[in-house]
């Protein structure tokens, strides 16, 4: 029967897959997807800890709900920014948006 450690292994793997995607991708939408993977791995952690370590409380459930709400708000704002950037630069590559770099 898989237990807490199995789920922690999966969420750690998911987190670092997201980190790998965030480092290699240069396209803003795919970077946003990697961020979603990272947030999801954290949610899975909260639920697993709540299930196996604090079954008498519901705090992990609330944190998960709040993180999902914040992720939705973050994705909406990020996509508004991406569409605006596409309008002004005709590209959503992070290498092409470097006016504020120097």
């Amino acid at each position: 029967m898989p237990g807490l450690y199995h789920i922690l292994f999966i969420s750690t793997a998911l987190f670092f897959i997201g980190v790998y995607g965030f480092f290699t991708r240069r396209n803003l939408i795919t970077m946003l997807m990697s961020t979603e993977l990272i947030l999801n791995s954290v949610n899975l952690n909260f639920i697993a800890f709540n299930k196996y370590l604090w079954p008498g409380k519901l705090d992990g459930v609330f944190f998960t709900i709040f993180i999902i709400a914040i992720a939705a708000a973050e994705a909406a704002v990020a996509i508004a920014i991406i569409i605006n950037l596409y309008r002004s630069h005709k590209s959503i590559d992070v290498e092409k948006a470097e006016e504020m770099k120097y």
């Binding site: 807490l4 079954p55 008498g56």
Partner: peptide, 14 residues
Amino acid sequence: ILLHPFAATSDTVT
């Protein structure tokens, strides 16, 4: 994670 011993805190289940 594997070195850390996780211990459950309560027996009651909500």
